[in-house]
Design a protein around this nucleic acid. Structure first.
Length: 271
DNA sequence: AATCGCGCCTGACGGC
DNA sequence: TGCCGTCAGGCGCGAT
C-alpha cells in the first residue's frame, strides 16, 4: 500500500508531466470513493493549468490557478500517466486528460482513496489543517516527539502513527523504525526518554529516506501504458516476517495486534 | 483531551 | 470447482 515514500515517488513522477500543461477533459467513471468525487470537479478543473505538485503527508496537491485537486491514494490507489488513447481497465475511476495527450489515471480497487476539489488555501482545509509536521522536516526531531508524548499512555507505535503527531508513518514503517531504534512497539509513549526519542526520529528519517531513494530507482519508468505501477519492493527487516530470525539476534520475530494493527517486533532487541 | 472502535471496500486465501 | 468467511489496511469520525 502507498506509504509516504511511494506518494513522494508518485509526486516526483507526475510533476514534470503536469506542470505547465492544462486540463482538456476530466472523466469520472466511478465517483464513489472515500468521499464522493464532486460532480463539479470536471467543470472546475477543465481548462485549468497545473502550477505545482505538492505532497502533505500522504496527500497529493495538484495546484491550479483557481483551486487545488486534493488527492489521497488510500490503501490501494495508484496514479499512472498513460497516452490518452489507452482504454481504461478495471477500477480506473478517474482520468484527467491533459493538453499534452497524456492522461493522469486514478485506479483504486478498494476505493479508500479520494479526489477532491478545494478552492480555499489547501493548508487551511479541514483535512490538512490538523496534521502534524512532516517526518523529514528538520523541525521534526527527538525533543518535539518527547514533548508531545508526555503523559501519553498510548503505545509508541500508535503514537507515531497518529497524524496529528507526525504525518506519513504507516504501519510498515512504524514497525521498521521501532525495530531500528530498539523500542518495543507497546511501550507507553510517555515513558520513553529524550535520548531514545532522538534515536527513534533518526530511525524514522532513515527508513523513509532509504525507501524514497529505492522508489526513485525502481519507478524510473513511471510513464507506462500497461501493467500495474509497481510499488517498489521494500527492503524490510521486520515487517511481515513472522517467525523469521531477527536480523540482529536471530530470535524469531513476533507478530502482535496493537491498536487494531498488525505489528512485528523482536522481543529480544526491542524494549 | 486522549483514546477506542467502527466503517468504508476489494482481493487473496483457506477450509469445506 | 465454487462458495463463504476472514483478514488486510489509511484514516476520519463519533463515542467514551
Amino acid at each position: 500500500m502507498p506509504e509516504l515514500p511511494e506518494v513522494e515517488t508518485v509526486r516526483c513522477g507526475i510533476e514534470p508531466h503536469l506542470v505547465g500543461h492544462y486540463v482538456r477533459t476530466v472523466i469520472i467513471r466511478e465517483p464513489r470513493l472515500r468521499w464522493p468525487v464532486p460532480l463539479s470537479l470536471s467543470q472546475k478543473l477543465t481548462g485549468q493549468s497545473f502550477l505545482t505538485v505538492q505532497r502533505r503527508g500522504k496527500y497529493l496537491l495538484l495546484n491550479c490557478p483557481q483551486g487545488t485537486v486534493l488527492l489521497h491514494l488510500g490503501m490501494s490507489g495508484s496514479l499512472r500517466l498513460v497516452p490518452d488513447n489507452v482504454p481504461p481497465g478495471k477500477h480506473d475511476h478517474l482520468d484527467i486528460v491533459l493538453s499534452n495527450d497524456c492522461c493522469l489515471r486514478f485506479n483504486d480497487p478498494r476505493r479508500f482513496g479520494s479526489v477532491l476539489w478545494i478552492q480555499e488555501n489547501p493548508l487551511s482545509h479541514p483535512l490538512l489543517k490538523p496534521l502534524g509536521p512532516e517526518p523529514l522536516d528538520p523541525l521534526f526531531d527527538g525533543s518535539y516527539l518527547f514533548k508531545r508524548s508526555r503523559h501519553r499512555r498510548a503505545p509508541i507505535k500508535v503514537f507515531i502513527m497518529n497524524h496529528r503527531v507526525v504525518v506519513g508513518i504507516g504501519n510498515i514503517y512504524a514497525s521498521e523504525a521501532l525495530f531500528q531504534a530498539g523500542i518495543h512497539p507497546r511501550r507507553a509513549a510517555g515513558r520513553i526518554s529524550l535520548g531514545r526519542y532522538q534515536r527513534l526520529v533518526e530511525a524514522i528519517k532513515t527508513v523513509l529516506y532509504q525507501a524514497i531513494q529505492a522508489g526513485g530507482t525502481t519507478l524510473r519508468d513511471f510513464v507506462t501504458s500497461d501493467g500495474k505501477p509497481g510499488y517498489f519492493s521494500h527492503q524490510l527487516q521486520i515487517y511481515g516476517r513472522t517467525a523469521h530470525p531477527c536480523p540482529t539476534c536471530g530470535n524469531p520475530i513476533r507478530v502482535d495486534r496493537i491498536g487494531q494493527r498488525t505489528s512485528y517486533y523482536c522481543a529480544q532487541c526491542q524494549h
